[in-house]
Amino acid sequence: MADLSMSSAMTGPRGARPKRALSPRNIMLYGILIVVCLYYLLPLWVMVMTSLKGMPEVRMGNIFAPPVEITFQPWVKAWAEACTGLNCDGLSRGFWNSVIITVPSVILSIAIASVNGYALINWKFKGSDIFFTILIFGSFIPYQIMLYPIVILLREMGLYGSLWGLVLVHSVFGMPILTLLFRNYFSSIPEELFKAARVDGAGFWGIYFRIMLPMSLPIFVVALILQVTGIWNDFLFGVVYTKPAYYPMTVQLNNIVNSVQGVKEYNVNMAATLLTGLVPLVVYFVSGKLFVRGIAAGAVKG
């Protein structure tokens, strides 16, 4: 009996199952993924290549081919000399406008939303959830319906056309998603911690600054990424709520590229486009997985 089972055990497969790295399944899988990635990378490649060519080479050559002669002239021109209307000081003006719009908007919107999320979880009061529901529904409503009433509100406050008006608008429209983000995060912090702090005599702001804030740095980084890219990429609010002198980079880029007068300088256009996309791209590549977490937050059910 014992011998029989031993011998039959030895004749069958034994040891590790053989693995094949190049199975047809894997070739298919990686093949498809690589082709897809080429589609995604193509525009970036074209942008970089075009921006490094001189105009004669752009006209003669193939947009996919690397430059024969690398020139940084288009970048210089896009940054400092490109014209929008009568202004010919390049994208740099838009860049700095975007910086001074983005920085306070990001700070203000995150400050407000984090306090909202904290109050909604730990300091519920009558009706607080109703306001939150309105906020979430509001985030799905087309901005267009609120465009003009906000014009009136800003005009009443004397902020229409100013940078601070735009900062306020960004804070308002960033509020739903950020509040949701912070609310969900704070709800994962054990409630007993909050209770312990109350027994220890800490109040609303004491608990926020001393307990919640130090525990929530990751979610603040996520919010930062979300807001920097979101506000930097905004076009509509920039057009509607600011004067041409304060136009953010996206608006100025569009005006440069799509202006009808003059000869089209495609290499300068691509350099300008790249320059505008650079800030969010840098944020994206540096932040890695946190960016994914940020965008997925919008899909997380509240």
Partner: peptide, 17 residues
């Protein structure tokens, strides 16, 4: 307020900061 009641509290999840 909780802190004014003259109580100390110990929680299930410890609730240490």
């Amino acid at each position: 307020e909780p802190s004014d009641r003259g109580i100390g509290m110990v929680f299930q999840s410890y609730a240490l900061y």
